[in-house]
Computed example of a mutant assay.
Amino acid sequence: MGVAIRVAREDDREAVVGLLDRAFQDDPVSGWVFPGEEYRRTTHHRLMAAFTDIVLADGRIDITEDGAACALWLSVPAEAHEEDEAGFAQLREAVDPANERVELIGRLTAGIHPSGRAHEYLWMIGVDPAHQGRGLGTALVEHVLERCDRDGLPAYLEASNARSRALYERLGFTVQGAALALPDGPLMWPMWREPHGA
């Protein structure tokens, strides 16, 4: 496909935050966490900034050379430690203290995250709306899946809409168990991919 991809650096932070903010403005889960267009437009970026900071510190952000798309990955060890319960409350306090859904989304997704096997976790992937439909998301995911296949590592994610779920299915992910139904909100599908050709 010829998509140039590199690892994001600290000086890419603002570009990544802006990209994720634009990419997820119309996402069903973002709409549930931040209901109302004006509220989401003025607040959503703070959650994307918190996610970016976490992954810059503890994971890997792949970004296309043109800055049109990025993927946030975390390497999860087999003996992953229990989630820091205080961390979800701290995230809410930092992002939007009055919004309990900021904390709840972290608790709910942590509750369905598989344990017991080391894997790569695709926390989120964003493509600028002006560049969607050009295969950038596929290229970013395949970039890491090639390494997963080479190293014999599975991969995991939660799909936040039917379109992304279909993309991940084409890349070899399968839905694991029941979908997560957000309270009075959309579904999220936990998806797992065993390494291919191992």
Results as ranks from 00 to 15, higher is better:
148 C>V: 01
141 V>Q: 05
37 E>M: 14
118 A>P: 14
25 Q>V: 09
141 V>I: 05
123 W>H: 12
16 V>M: 04
87 G>N: 04
38 E>Y: 14
93 E>M: 02
169 E>D: 07
169 E>W: 03
70 C>G: 03
176 Q>W: 08
94 A>G: 11
39 Y>M: 15
89 A>D: 02
78 A>W: 11
57 A>I: 13
166 A>S: 03
174 T>R: 14
63 I>D: 06
173 F>K: 03
193 R>D: 04
31 G>I: 02
187 L>S: 06
37 E>S: 14
71 A>I: 07
46 R>Y: 00
45 H>T: 08
87 G>H: 04
104 L>I: 13
82 E>R: 08
94 A>T: 13
183 P>N: 04
127 V>N: 07
97 P>D: 04
195 P>N: 08
187 L>D: 02
181 A>E: 01
173 F>Q: 06
127 V>H: 02
169 E>K: 05
167 L>V: 05
21 D>T: 10
15 A>L: 00
103 E>I: 09
29 V>D: 11
165 R>N: 08
3 V>L: 06
147 R>C: 09
157 L>D: 01
145 L>I: 01
122 L>G: 01
86 A>T: 13
181 A>C: 08
153 L>M: 09
54 I>Q: 15
167 L>P: 00
154 P>D: 11
86 A>K: 14
32 W>D: 06
190 P>A: 07
176 Q>Y: 10
55 V>F: 01
194 E>D: 08
124 M>N: 11
127 V>E: 02
107 R>F: 13
48 M>G: 15
118 A>Y: 13
134 R>H: 06
83 E>L: 14
61 I>D: 02
79 E>L: 11
171 L>A: 02
49 A>R: 12
33 V>P: 02
